[in-house]
Design a protein around this nucleic acid. Sequence first.
DNA 1: GCCAACGTTGGC
DNA 2: GCCAACGTTGGC
Length: 169
Amino acid sequence: MAKRASKSRSAKRRYWLFKSEPSSYSIDDLAAESDQTTFWDGVRNYQARNMLRDDVQVGDRVLFYHSNARPMAVVGTCEVVKAAYPDHTAFDPDDHHYDPKSDPDEPTWFMVDVKLIQKFDTPVTRDMLKECGDLSEMMVLKRGSRLSIQPVTAGEWKAIHKLAGAKDR
DNA sequence: GCCAACGTTGGC
DNA sequence: GCCAACGTTGGC
């Protein structure tokens, strides 16, 4: 019997946008980490959690977006280097993201590890996103879109690199 | 199960 | 600082 063709050996790479308020964690903070790697903690929304837990895979690419800041912008890119595992900050009463209802034996909240690929020399500001026709459908531009983890398309990934004058690495 | 009150997000 | 859009909570 032939091997199952459906069992593809390399899952298709996906693209994401992760939001962070730079006042709490910026791309410069990531750049300053040893290994330029960090865990992406604090996601406390079920829809975002589901994507993080079920869909974000090692090797996926991430746009690092600065929200609630000046300027609001995609400031660089990361690679997912570890898939979802329990977000320990949910169990720490001293942590800002503590969730008393979560249970270490059956974790509610998850996080992934990301490694910096590059910080853009030219951040792609929200205004630039809005002015680019190819990016007008991006979720982050939609009114009331509060998801901190959002899927983006390969085309959007490419267009943003073009606006940043950056190589797609 | 409904829904009003409340808290948070996050652009403006 | 304002406030629209959401998500969550809790009384009923």
